[in-house]
Design a protein around this nucleic acid. Structure first.
Ligand code: MN
Ligand code: MN
Ligand code: MN
Ligand code: MN
Lengths: 221, 221
DNA sequence: TCTAAATTTTAGGCTTATCTAAATTATTAT
DNA sequence: ATAATAATTTAGATAAGCCTAAAATTTAGA
């Protein structure tokens, strides 16, 4: 059995592994779970004991196959529940994370699969993040940061690199949503801020910082 | 804050209080939660400390207003989730209890209220049990045990006194569902077993034990 | 290379929730 | 009324997760 707390550690390690290619540090885990480093060390020993991670003191940590499988299943549940909360219950995308953080720990295979069917087998959650399938496979998708795109390209907003409430609400205010068609009109050389058009008409100005956190697909033209 | 475990204790005390009018014994709580009596005593002290129960050593326990309120909210969540699982995800009534047992602990007011709306403000769960409203009020409903009804009365099955999987599956086999119209044809004097008709046509034979666990409303005729 | 700083682990404690076994209190039956 | 039985509480342990502070190790700087 994997406890609620162990699940949160595994998911945190998985998410950190996705970003940083290297091995994951004790401090990084501590920060992402808001616990102290000493608590992390305790837990790493336990997870290693259970065969969920490879752990060598002082040299970081890595998920085993079984650990990754467990983590991905939690991510699957988290994202499916987020779709449910937004699509069926009408929550906004900036409201659902704390609820999904709890719902993700409810573990009944048939519940997950029925929920998946009920939602129409969604491939992405309300934040554009991919939902792994029952086998733990992620649908590969090609995206670049808006800050790395060129003027003249036809772009579509498909994901985010930042999931904070503040950022989500900022995007709402600018009426930038997943699926929006974006074209870069101009990049200011001084601060790299962008002038863009959204869905062909509205023209909006955003900072380089914001553009770095928006993922876009480049459409054939 | 009320912990997951404390919530289960409060709900257990509430359910026992509904059945037995008297004060609730340590042993009864221990049995219903499958823990030992000594563990219960520990928890009772803690709940009393928090003002959730009235507790006098050796003389039983009773919920305070605040304790009852907490318990009823958990019951509300449990039953709403059961409706979701049956109505939206297509589970059978004998499958949903363990899942609801976990879902009931997820505590976000807006989630409960939106779920309630999504489900169409149901008043009863899939087992015929009433769903308390946001204020903790139960809709009063008048029912008697089928074993106490008379020949010739027009009856409708509206609830159960036994929620075990075995009993639910037995009712399925007999095609006895909530809402079924029942009339008692004959009661055998020897073992009090009943011959009944279901929805006017099908004739079925059930034991007194089964009849005791079926709740019916007596319809005006 | 050698020392200072940063990171990580260890040691010792605390809290919650559980258990078993012993002690206490209440109930029941003669 | 008393003794046996049943119910309840207390005492002493354990396990999971967390903390702080000290010790150990690694990394980085001069
Ligand atoms: Mn979580
Ligand atoms: Mn998400
Ligand atoms: Mn529960
Ligand atoms: Mn029910």
């Amino acid at each position: 059995m994997v406890s609620y707390t162990e699940e949160n550690y595994l998911k945190a390690i998985f998410k950190l592994s996705e970003k940083n290619k290297e091995e994951i540090s004790t401090n990084a885990i501590a920060e992402s779970l808001a616990v102290k480093a000493g608590s992390v060390t305790d837990m790493l020993k336990k997870l290693a004991e259970k065969g969920l991670i490879h752990y060598t003191p002082y040299s970081g940590v890595e998920l085993t196959g079984q650990g990754r499988q467990t983590a991905v299943k939690i991510v699957r549940k988290h994202r499916l529940w987020e779709v449910f909360l937004v699509e069926k219950l009408g929550f906004r995308w900036d409201q659902v994370h704390p609820m999904a953080e709890e719902l993700e720990h409810i573990d009944f295979d048939e519940l997950i699969e029925r929920l998946d069917v009920f939602l129409g087998n969604p491939k992405f959650d309300p934040h554009g993040d991919p939902i792994p399938d029952e086998k733990g496979e992620f649908q590969p998708s090609e995206s670049i940061r808006l800050s790395e795109a060129d003027t003249g390209q036809r772009l579509q907003m498909i994901g985010l690199e930042n999931h904070t409430t503040a950022f989500l609400q900022y995007l709402d205010k600018k009426e930038l949503a997943l699926g929006s068609r974006i074209a870069i009109v101009e990049v200011a050389p001084f601060d790299k801020s962008l002038t863009i058009t959204i869905d062909g008409d509205r023209q909006v100005h955003i900072s380089h910082e914001v553009a770095k956190n928006i993922l876009v697909a480049v459409k054939e033209s």
